[in-house]
Nucleic acid binder design. Structure first.
Length: 432
RNA sequence: UCCUGGAUAGCUCAGUGGCAGAGCGUCCGGCUGUUAACCGGAAUGUCGCAGGUUCGACCCCUGCUCCAGGAGCCA
């Protein structure tokens, strides 16, 4: 019985006889040699079948393997003849577990987006998608470890929510035993309740947006992490966002450098992500845009192009704070030095990846919050529970939300968020 | 919802009002160190769908469907 090993462990087994199980990724042949590239999820290795080492039957079998055949091979591990630090298996036994019933649609050649998205369930097996999945998993692990290790308590927010905070047109409506229920757009309001219970709370889960957005930055279903901290102001919020982002980037560089390099991410750009992040006000951002020739005026919100122009001035994320109240949600606290401004902040990633974090300090005065709800023409009764947080020991607090997919796109250097999530849900795509 | 572009072999694409094409993949053959291997040979089509113009339409016209990029939208 030979030892079963994973491909990423082969380096420690040189000279040993091992068994590996996986799928055929690619094959090259000459008259007396077959080079089988085997993929097992942990990595890819070359398995060499030499005519002189195996029975005629096994050699013939190896000649007729098609892509994605599942295999079990045994042989001795050795260092690659040409590539130092790369290991291969000199095959002595080969067992076919299952032969594909038809040709695997995704060859190692180029394909179009539509075709790949239709075959997303198979596309995930490719080297590039595998690397992205692993970076995504590392980002999520880094996010959880950061909050778990800094005194936060995970408090899960509900997915079904009772009332639309703002119009229902951008929410997915479901039938909840006869009542309308909506898929959550954010767990933030619930985190404010949680912060009063545990002090530092965060939630991590899927969120849903039904708006008909069709851009490289939008998904109908995406994952968001939302911390909320009691007795923290906007300044503390910006410091938290900065410390958190730096920690996540460092973790991914430390643990997933190989994957980033395999997808040709310029990691030197990520090495620059250090504290402190530049901070500019909304007003300064508008000035920057005007100097760059954009006809931006005070009161405009930023689109993708504007965010890129603003962030291009910096080699690390830039924090833009104090937007006009009119552009922001009802729950932001007004700047006491200029009540037309919100105590909010957005973090724009460098290299044109846009907003990855949005957050700020929340309004903690009951009367001011009630006025804001009225001003936004929202149904007061739906927010009674939320207003209770101001009735029973109101407290200054702040938080933010980070979009996982935009972060994955940024760290992996991907032009579109559709490759950052295993099975993207977009305007015109629900399958597979 | 709007603008622009697109749909031809399994995939990526070229094509012209007059016999449907290439590269890759697949299949067969060759080669002892290949790296998206290479060399030789073969098979492969509802030219997105429906209608129209024409002696003749993959090509021109109309409608529709789907996709992509962008805009709007986007606590």
């Amino acid at each position: 019985m030979t030892k079963r090993v994973k491909i990423d462990q082969l380096g420690g087994e040189v000279g040993e006889r091992v068994t590996i199980e996986g799928w055929l990724y690619n094959k090259r042949s000459s008259g007396k040699l077959h080079f089988l590239e085997l993929r097992d999820g942990s990595g890819i290795c070359q398995c060499v079948v030499f005519k002189g080492d195996v029975s005629a039957e096994i050699f013939a079998k190896a000649d007729h393997l098609s892509q994605e055949t599942s295999l079990r091979v045994s042989g001795v591990v050795r260092e690659h003849a040409k590539l130092k630090g790369t290991f291969e298996v000199g095959v002595t036994e080969l067992e076919v577990l299952a032969t594909p019933m038809r040709e695997f649609p995704i060859s190692p050649k180029e394909h179009g987006t539509d075709f790949l998205m239709d075959n997303r369930h198979l596309w995930l097996r490719s080297k590039r998608q595998h690397a992205i999945l692993r970076v995504r998993a590392e980002i999520i692990a880094a996010v959880r470890d950061y909050f778990d290790g800094n005194g936060f308590t995970l408090v899960d927010a509900p997915i079904f929510t009772p009332n639309a905070c703002e119009g229902t047109s951008n929410l997915f409506e479901t039938d909840y035993h006869g009542d309308a229920a909506y898929l959550t757009q954010s767990g933030q309001l619930y985190m404010e309740a949680a912060a009063a219970a545990v002090g530092k709370a965060y939630c991590f889960g899927p969120t849903f947006r039904a708006e008909k957005s069709k851009t490289r930055r939008h998904l109908a279903e995406f994952w968001m992490v939302e911390p909320e901290v009691a007795f923290m102001d906007l300044e503390g919020d910006m410091e938290l966002a900065e410390d958190f982002l730096v920690s996540v980037v460092a973790r991914v560089l430390d643990k997933r450098r190989k994957e980033l390099e395999s997808i040709e991410r310029d990691t030197s750009k990520l090495e620059l992500i250090k504290k402190p992040f530049p901070r500019i006000t909304y007003a300064q951002a508008i000035e920057t845009l005007q100097k760059a020739g954009h006809d931006a005026k005070h009161g405009d919100d930023f689109g993708g192009d504007e965010e890129t122009v603003i962030s291009n001035g910096f080699d690390r994320p830039v924090i833009v704070h104090r937007y006009p109240m009119d552009l922001k949600a009802f729950y932001f606290k007004k700047d006491p030095t200029d009540p037309r401004l919100a105590l909010n902040m957005d973090v724009l990633a460098p290299e044109g990846y846009g907003e990855v974090i949005g957050g700020g300090q929340r309004e903690d005065d009951l009367a001011t919050l009630e006025a804001a709800i009225t001003h936004h023409k929202l149904p007061m009764e739906a927010f009674e529970w939320y207003l209770d947080l101001r009735r029973y020991g109101s407290f200054p607090h702040a938080g933010f939300g980070l979009g996982i997919e935009r972060t994955v796109a940024w760290l992996c250097g991907l032009p579109h968020v559709r490759e950052t999530i295993p099975f993207p849900r977009m305007l015109n795509r629900l399958h597979p």
